[in-house]
Amino acid sequence: MSPSNPGRNTPESIHGVVMAKTPGDSPGMSASQQSFHPKNEGTTLYAQAMNQTVPAMGM
């Protein structure tokens, strides 16, 4: 279990930087498009972060 995620068996709810590419990734990108993608338990956290960040950026 992770101290930042008590009760969870995964260390993160949103993927960090993923360097391993999949066939669908763009060849010019250095990191995979899977980077910063929420896992199932991270979808609510991701939505909350976006709902706070996008308006703060004036969008």
Rank of each mutant, 00 (worst) to 15 (best):
R8D: 12
N51G: 03
N51F: 00
V18A: 00
T43E: 09
P38S: 07
G58L: 04
M29G: 07
S4K: 11
S30K: 15
A56M: 06
G7I: 01
V17C: 10
E12P: 06
P6C: 11
L45Y: 03
P6G: 08
H15L: 07
R8P: 02
M29R: 14
A49M: 06
P11A: 08
D25N: 07
P3Y: 07
S32Y: 13
M57L: 13
G58Y: 04
M59D: 13
T22M: 11
G7H: 02
G7E: 02
A20M: 07
Q52L: 04
E12K: 06
M1Q: 15
K21E: 08
P55S: 05
N40I: 11
S30Q: 13
P6Y: 10
P23S: 04
K21C: 09
S35L: 06
Q33T: 07
M50L: 14
P6I: 09
Q48G: 01
N51I: 01
G42T: 01
G24C: 12
G7T: 04
T53C: 02
S4L: 12
P38V: 01
N51V: 01
T43A: 09
S32Q: 11
T53R: 02
Q48Y: 00
D25E: 04
A31S: 10
T22R: 14
P27L: 11
M19D: 05
V54S: 00
L45T: 01
Q48H: 00
S2H: 08
Q52W: 01
Q48R: 02
S2M: 07
T44A: 08
E41R: 05
T44M: 06
N9Y: 13
S32R: 10
N40H: 10
Q34Y: 08
M1W: 13
S26G: 14
P38I: 03
K21A: 06
M59S: 12
G28C: 11
Q52P: 01
T10D: 08
D25K: 01
M50T: 03
A31P: 02
A49T: 03
